[in-house]
Design a protein around this nucleic acid. Structure first.
Lengths: 212, 212
DNA sequence: AGGCTATATTGACACTGTCAAGATAGAAGT
DNA sequence: ACTTCTATCTTGACAGTGTCAATATAGCCT
């Protein structure tokens, strides 16, 4: 009927019966749609139309709609892992600065892409056994984050009694809580947020940065 | 076609054309379904069938599906307000104990009814301007919670520099993060959780319970 | 008794996820 | 080179969804 938008990332532009890299195109478009119109705003049929293929084409690359969403969530964790890695490996900045940067980046990502963030930590992704690849990369991301706290331990900046894993966990919990409350619009828009983060950070500094 | 299940909470059992208290029945059934089969498991049509009315009957009591969900979420906050109030007003237990109890109850509620909890803090409820009544009762609930921290301040158990509202906020953030990570299955099921909460609590005690 | 209004009903529509059966094209084997 | 195989993409179909419009019912007010 309508041959609209046939040219979104056609790897082999000669013929477009076989799209070439449909999987990538679908993923990119999905991320785009979700970030703009929200999770609810993404339907497989609409997505297919946007990319320029038929309704059922995506099923050859993703088992389910759920599988697609899992892939989008995974992409989010990849992005997060990337900027964690970038901060951790940088020898220029001191440890405390690294942590501060990582935490700030984290919240910034969440607030910038609330819908994708919701997906990443959504109930559906973690309850099921299916989304295996997703869970692996998510855990890799967490491991990188924990590494930061282990560095503190190694440098003796933590009390003996402090368990770096546990510390990382409740710090993540706080961060996650803040991020969610913030980007779900429960904290009054934006003004408060920065102040609250600053407050939380200073409380943390007071506790952790205490050489024995 | 099928007149199945005509007798769920019929207030006026004589005739069942006018159900009598459909609104309550719908709400109760919704809470039930959501707690058992999840948010995804609730469809208006199915709900109507369960309650024993036609598909569009609910629309005379709730503008939208969203409005229904908001009502379910609101019910959750009412329940929460109830047990906050119960703890706060009890003159038997000392202040610190009150806080501990409130926090424990909070997480327990979240873990017991994860789907409803998700609804209560879900993006959709807070973004829109529509859900007005919901937001009011939610904020009432929060106010009660904040009151606890103000009591600490009044009794001089807080440092001068500590702002009870800010403190309440980041404590809620931590709690919320913990609750979500827990009931979304991101923390390894249950074993860890109690330990983590205990850990967070002791860290808090160390900071707050320091008479000047 | 008559009528108003809140409440409930059937019919219809567009949209969704997903399965089954068939078409296509590029790669692999002869 | 020609066949065959297989991954990929297509159309057709179905059940399920939220929601609107038009209609029916019944209890309350006068």
């Amino acid at each position: 009927m309508d041959k609209l938008i046939p040219n979104i990332t056609p790897a082999t532009p000669s013929t477009n019966y076989h799209h070439g890299n449909l999987r990538e195109a679908l993923l990119a478009a999905s991320v785009d749609i979700i970030r703009n119109k929200g999770i609810q705003g993404l339907s497989l049929r609409n997505l297919a139309e946007v990319v320029g293929v038929s309704r059922t084409a995506p099923y050859h690359h993703f088992k389910d709609k759920d599988a697609l969403l899992a892939a989008v969530a995974e992409q989010g964790f990849l992005e997060m892992s990337a900027f964690f890695h970038k901060v951790i490996e940088n020898p220029e900045i001191p440890l405390m600065q690294k942590l501060k940067q990582a935490l700030t980046d984290y919240v910034q990502f969440a607030v910038a892409h609330p819908e994708q963030y919701e997906l990443m930590f959504g109930r559906d992704m973690w309850q099921e056994e299916n989304h295996d690849a997703f869970q692996r990369t998510a855990k890799d991301c967490f491991r990188q984050y924990v590494q930061l706290f282990e560095l503190f331990k190694e440098e003796g900046l933590l009390e003996e009694s402090e368990n770096p894993l546990r510390l990382a966990q409740i710090m993540w919990a706080t961060l996650h809580g803040l991020a969610k409350l913030a980007c779900d619009g429960i904290f009054g828009k934006q003004d408060d947020l920065d102040d609250i983060i600053q407050y939380a950070m200073s409380r943390f500094e007071g506790t952790i940065n205490r050489p024995k």
